[in-house]
């Protein structure tokens, strides 16, 4: 995959993970910075998005500034993992949901409009799955999200 990217696509992916211009025509500014036309920037971003390489051009919100969120973990008997993961996914408050290699093998992030709703969803997930949920809310953030520097050598 990585080797199939053009140099223009590599620049689009790496150079604009933050500080997207807050002017009426941000894509034209990107185009000017890269010395290409706006049409090329838009069509490449569109195909990168359609291909699932980028999830969006947009904001990453700071956790816990709006509403309430937590990282939750469940120790699921292996034979129930898919069933429990699907149950967890039915809640709109769940965004990321991963299997991880540990006794606590299902990890998901819950984001709700407020603490009360967060507690309610945690209780509903425990009731629906019959399994206790470990809730590990963020207490302090150390990392400043500057995006992720991509390396192209393969």
């Amino acid at each position: 995959m990585a080797t199939a990217l053009s140099v223009l696509q590599q620049h689009l992916l790496n150079d604009f993970q933050r500080d997207l211009p807050l002017t009426p025509t941000p894509y034209r500014e990107i185009a000017d910075a890269l010395g290409v036309d706006e049409e090329a920037v838009l069509s490449h971003l569109q195909s990168l998005q359609t291909g699932g390489v980028i999830s969006r051009v947009g904001p990453v919100f700071a956790p816990n500034r709006l509403g309430a969120s937590t990282l939750a973990a469940v120790a699921v008997p292996p034979e129930r993992l898919e069933e429990v993961a699907a149950l967890v996914n039915t809640f709109t408050e769940v965004n990321h949901n991963y299997e991880r290699e540990h006794r606590y093998n299902l990890w998901f992030v819950l984001t709700a409009r407020d603490e009360a709703r967060l507690s309610e969803v945690l209780a509903q997930i425990e009731a629906a799955t019959g399994l206790p949920v470990l809730s590990l809310p963020l207490l302090e953030e150390f990392h400043i999200d500057l995006g992720f520097p991509l390396r192209w050598e393969d």
Binding site: L12, F16, R18, V53, I54, V57, G58, V60, F61, L146
Partner: peptide, 8 residues
Amino acid sequence: IKRLGVVV
């Protein structure tokens, strides 16, 4: 908003 840009 922590950052605004391309989310890969």
